[in-house]
Computed example of a mutant assay.
Amino acid sequence: MVEEFTINEEGYHPFIIKKGWQLAKLNYTKEQHISQITQLDVHLKTDEIFVAITGKAVLIAAEIIENEPKFEIELMKVNQIYNIPKGVWHNIAMEEGSEVFIAEKADTHVSDFEHFPLDNDKIEELRILVSSELQSEID
């Protein structure tokens, strides 16, 4: 009667998909390292809930004004629940060993996303912001 799930592989893995909702696990992958983030994503039909399980992860949110993203970043606390409302551009930077649960509408990963590519100046700005946030946590 009890279902049990263990997901150790790198990357994004929806593992419970039910009518109307899904739960996924995002395990660190090189693509989520701050040095590799080159775009933002948005979901138009669902909020997205994030819960850090272990490691260090930084949620990146942005408002795009006149084709320029204005970033807001949040160093995630383990076991704290974070919500990115539908329509908010976002991404997540992770350090090696980090794991995050993600809850959202079912099949969001299949059809409800758009991408916004960052230019080189915005990539560098984001790297500085995230690195500074991670460093301030160490200090």
Rank of each mutant, 00 (worst) to 15 (best):
E95Q: 15
I73K: 03
A106P: 05
M94W: 08
E99L: 06
L75C: 08
K77F: 00
V100H: 09
M94C: 05
K77T: 07
Y82Q: 01
F101E: 00
K86M: 10
N83R: 13
N79F: 14
M94P: 11
E104H: 04
E104N: 01
K77E: 05
F71H: 07
G97T: 09
I102G: 03
K70I: 10
W89C: 09
E72Q: 15
H90Y: 03
H90W: 02
E72H: 15
A106L: 06
Q80G: 08
N79H: 11
V78Y: 07
I102D: 02
W89M: 09
V88W: 12
V100L: 01
N83A: 12
K70V: 11
I73W: 00
Y82A: 02
H90F: 03
Q80A: 11
A106V: 05
G87S: 07
N91L: 01
I102E: 03
K105Y: 05
G97K: 01
H90M: 08
W89V: 08
N79P: 02
P85E: 15
V100I: 02
M76Y: 00
N91D: 03
G97V: 11
K70R: 13
I81T: 12
W89Y: 03
F71Q: 06
E72M: 13
M76E: 02
M94E: 10
I81F: 00
